[in-house]
């Protein structure tokens, strides 16, 4: 088991007007899953992803990644943990605007102190696998939304994380770019056994997912594994 959450509760503004974003979410995700977390706006999808990713802390409950409890980890340790174990793909791409595609992809590996040779080789492989080998020296502003998101996927994969969290990754993409991105992620999932967890509204993503977890009012309403 790669991810396990135990009774995750998240309450925003606990001292003012409390908002229960998550109400005791128990979840297990195995290595190699291609999982979509769906649900209406405000159901707690992004909050759950943020807590699993160690970007936010649960009010109650625990998150175990590869058996390690990250719920009480100090900030700096958590940053290191994220760097080595979790890949992020954001809705708004969030590439580093002053770096080229190649530099963006290699950035986390650089933070991991990997050698230049290793970085260069992996970055090239990844950019090839997302079909952007001809854009290595382009900055984000010179790339389309779809291309930027593919660079973001390559960046998330670069440090060889345990899994990738993608928050509404197709929300800003047209259908061609969406299908393209989903093809790439599905292939990486199948070929490299990379675990993907999406939060999404997008039916195209839901259709491609092999497991769909539906959140309603901060609780898991259904958990469907496709055959």
């Amino acid at each position: 088991m790669i991810i396990q959450t135990k009774g995750i509760t998240k309450i925003y503004n606990p001292n003012k007007i409390p908002v229960n974003a998550l109400n005791g979410v128990d979840l297990q995700i195995e290595e190699g899953e291609f999982t979509a977390i769906v649900g209406p706006s405000g159901s707690g999808k992004t909050t759950l992803l943020n807590i699993i990713g160690g970007l936010d802390q649960a009010t109650q409950g625990e998150v175990l990644i590869k058996g390690e409890n990250i719920s009480k980890m100090p900030d700096n340790q958590l940053i290191d943990f994220r760097k080595n174990n979790i890949g992020f793909v954001f809705q708004a791409y969030n590439l580093i605007p002053v770096l080229t595609a190649k530099e963006n992809v290699g950035f986390v590996m650089l933070l991991q102190n990997r050698s230049k040779e290793e970085r260069d080789q992996r970055v090239l492989e990844l950019l090839q696998s997302v079909g952007l080998e001809d854009k290595v020296n382009k900055r984000p502003s010179e790339l389309s939304g779809g291309q930027q998101q593919r660079v973001a996927v390559a960046r998330a994969l670069a440090p060889k994380p345990a899994f990738i969290l993608a928050d509404e990754p197709t929300a800003n993409l047209d259908s061609v770019s969406t299908n393209n991105l989903l093809d790439i992620m599905a292939r990486l999932n199948e070929e490299e056994k990379m675990t993907f967890i999406f939060s999404t509204h997008d039916q195209r993503v839901i259709d491609r997912a092999r497991r769909v977890i539906t959140l309603v009012d901060g609780k898991i309403a259904s958990d469907q594994v496709k055959s």
Partner: peptide, 16 residues
């Protein structure tokens, strides 16, 4: 802000 948040999210520590 968003960019700095992202940098810390993907593993850039506070010292850096």
């Amino acid at each position: 802000l968003r960019e700095l948040g992202m940098l810390m999210a993907i593993g850039m520590n506070k010292v850096r």
